[in-house]
């Protein structure tokens, strides 16, 4: 454990250096730049930051923790207890035990509460992120397969679509303005994709510009912040609704996940 934290500290410092170097250049192709940064990490550290987070998550997953002194190995992500292969590809989905539609992050929290006995307020966000990285790594490059079927899932998808078009804030923004009207174009230097084009298929990912692991909820929060809207709380309905909407649309567009955790700007 301690070794790994040291490693992450080192990589964080390295990443900072790289991203500072990056901001001094102008008009670089963001995809080529991500590829270059990734190679730099491979060569200098021999491992990608996302892989380190996933390894940390794997340890947390197997460890007996919490008031009930249990591991998360019995956690059911929708394919049966402990079945992790491809688990992310079908999330968010409805879970009868919690009677909620849950995304990967929310499901991890539910298992930490129900299996390990943690109180929600005692759960560390960093732990959830590492666990998300680990579970997601078992769906690397797999086709996305989110098809709302139960009434709860369909309702959540409809909520997500509504939020997607909800114009608000002093920038009069909604997600569709950038990600639909303008899909294929650029906001400043960033190319923008639509859900059908596979938006959201690279998360959780290490963002080298921020030098942090971002989950899909973190990425949604980031877009809200950038248009002056205070992001919804983690694990709340708006987060899950937007996630199921985007991933169901990405499924219709026949998209796959990238390498997970992803590596991006």
């Amino acid at each position: 454990m301690r070794d790994r934290s040291l490693w992450i500290g080192f990589l964080v410092a390295l990443g900072l250096g790289l991203s500072i170097a990056l901001t001094q250049q102008q008009e670089v192709d963001p995809y080529k730049e991500a590829e270059r940064q990734r190679e730099l990490f491979r060569q200098t550290a021999g491992i990608l930051p996302g892989e380190l987070y996933a390894a940390q998550g794997e340890e947390l997953f197997a460890q007996k923790r919490g008031p009930k002194n249990a591991s998360l190995e019995a956690c059911d992500f929708g394919l049966g207890p402990g079945k992790l292969e491809g688990a992310l590809t079908q999330l968010p989905r409805y879970f009868a035990d919690t009677r909620r539609v849950e995304d990967l992050e929310t499901r991890i929290v539910s298992c930490m509460v129900n299996l390990q006995g943690f109180r929600p307020q005692d759960i560390k966000r960093e732990d959830v992120k590492a666990l998300t990285a680990f579970v997601a790594s078992k769906s690397t490059e797999m086709p996305i397969n989110v098809v709302p079927r139960s009434s709860q899932e369909i309702a959540m998808y409809n909520l997500g679509r509504e939020l997607w078009y909800h114009r608000a804030g002093d920038r009069d923004m909604n997600c569709a303005i950038c990600h639909d009207s303008y899909a294929g174009g650029k906001v400043r230097l960033s190319p923008v994709r639509s859900p059908r084009q596979g938006l959201s298929n690279e998360w959780p990912a290490y963002r080298f510009e921020a030098d942090k692991l971002y989950t899909l909820e973190d990425r949604i929060a980031f877009c809200y912040e950038s248009v002056g809207i205070h992001p919804p709380e983690y694990y709340s309905e708006p987060m899950i609704a937007l996630s199921i909407y985007m991933l169901a649309e990405a499924t219709k567009g026949k998209n796959k996940f990238t390498e997970l955790p992803g590596f991006t700007r």
Binding site: A155, L159, L163, A168, P231, P232, S236, P238, A241
Partner: peptide, 24 residues
């Protein structure tokens, strides 16, 4: 109403900034 309930569940600050005027 269901949409509003979902927005409220995202927290006070989120709900506050998601308020719309009539034309939004």
């Amino acid at each position: 109403q269901r949409v509003q309930q979902a927005i409220n569940s995202g927290g006070n600050k989120f709900a506050e900034t998601m308020k719309q005027d009539r034309d939004q």
